[in-house]
Design a protein around this nucleic acid. Sequence first.
DNA 1: CCGGCGTCTGCATAAATATGCAAGGGCGGC
DNA 2: GCCGCCCTTGCATATTTATGCAGACGCCGG
Lengths: 166, 166
Amino acid sequence: MSPTVERAGNSVATKSGRQRAILDLVRSRTIRTQEELVGALRSRHLDVTQATVSRDIRELGLLRVPAGSGVRYLLPAAEIDAEAARSRLHNALSQHTQGIEFIDLLGIIHAQPGTASLVAVALDNARFEELAGTVAGDDTVLLIARSRPAGQRLLARLRTILEEPA
Amino acid sequence: MSPTVERAGNSVATKSGRQRAILDLVRSRTIRTQEELVGALRSRHLDVTQATVSRDIRELGLLRVPAGSGVRYLLPAAEIDAEAARSRLHNALSQHTQGIEFIDLLGIIHAQPGTASLVAVALDNARFEELAGTVAGDDTVLLIARSRPAGQRLLARLRTILEEPA
DNA sequence: CCGGCGTCTGCATAAATATGCAAGGGCGGC
DNA sequence: GCCGCCCTTGCATATTTATGCAGACGCCGG
C-alpha cells in the first residue's frame, strides 16, 4: 500500500485521514471489533487490514470496554473526561447559576447560596486553558482569566455551554 | 469450584471477594494481561484461571487501554468518579462534622456553622442509592433514606468512610 | 432424601488482537 | 539517476482474550 496515494487534503487515504475516520466512526456508532472497523472503513473506501487498525487504535489510545454481552471501543479517556466534565458543568451552571459577567480579567458568577463551590469545582474540572483559577465563596464564584481576550472567549464558551441542550 | 467455600466475610475466596481483590490490584499496580492478574491473585491465595478473570473483568467493567508499548487495565470511569467523590466526602465529613445519627428514615449530621451545605454537596455527589436526598441548613444536614434498613446501611457506610484512613 | 434449577468454574478451544518481518514507496544527498 | 534511510503497510503468526460445554455445588420444593 502506498502511504500517500491521494491528497484530497482532508480525509482520505493518508494515515492521519484514516485515523480521523476511525475516531469519527467510533464516536458515531458502536464498534465491537477491529474487523468491524475494517469493514466500516472499507465502505468509506479506506482499504486496510486488521493489523493496521490495531496499530491505529494503539496510537489513538482508544479504550476497549465491556458493553453488554461483549466489548466495544470508545474514545480515549481524555476525550471522555473532557466531555463528561463539560456536561457536568452544564448541569452545574444551569441548575445553580443566575448570571455570569466578565469585567476585564475577572469573571463573576452568581450562584445559589451554598452552591458556589460546586460550580467552581465543575469549572476547575473542565480545564479551560483561558481560566487561571477560581475562588468560591458561598454564593459567588470569582474567575480569573489569563488575559482580557481570554476572558471574553471564556464568557462566550460558558454561555454556549449554558445554552447547549446536551 | 464451590462458590461459597468460605465465609470469612470480607475478603476471600468468594466471587465478590475475588473481584474486590481484582479492583484492588488494578488500582494499585500495573496489570498488563489477564495472566498477570491470575498470577497476582495466586500470590493472594486466590486460585483462578484466566477464563474466570476474563469473566470478572467483564462484570467489573474494567477498561483496557493502550499504555506505552502495550496495554493495561484500568478502573472504569464510574468507579474512579465514585472513588474521588468518596474521598471528598471523607474530607468533608472528617473536617466539618461532629456527629451522625439516624432515626428511622431520617439522618442528622451536625456540622460546623456554615459548612452544612458543603457536606450536603459531598453527600449528593457520592450518590448513595440508599439516600433519597439531603437538606442543608447552616450547621445541620438532614438526610432522607429510602427505607429504614437503607438508613441503617447508610449510617454504617458513613461511619466507615469517616474512619477510613484513605 | 431426591430431583430440578441456577450459579460458578475449569478446560479446551474459538475468536480477537498484537507484532516480527519484509516489501514498497517517498525523499534527500550525492 | 542511484543509493540509503525512514515510514507505512500487509502477511503470517504469536499472544491474548472470550466462550461453549460440562462438572461441582448449593438451594429449594416435594
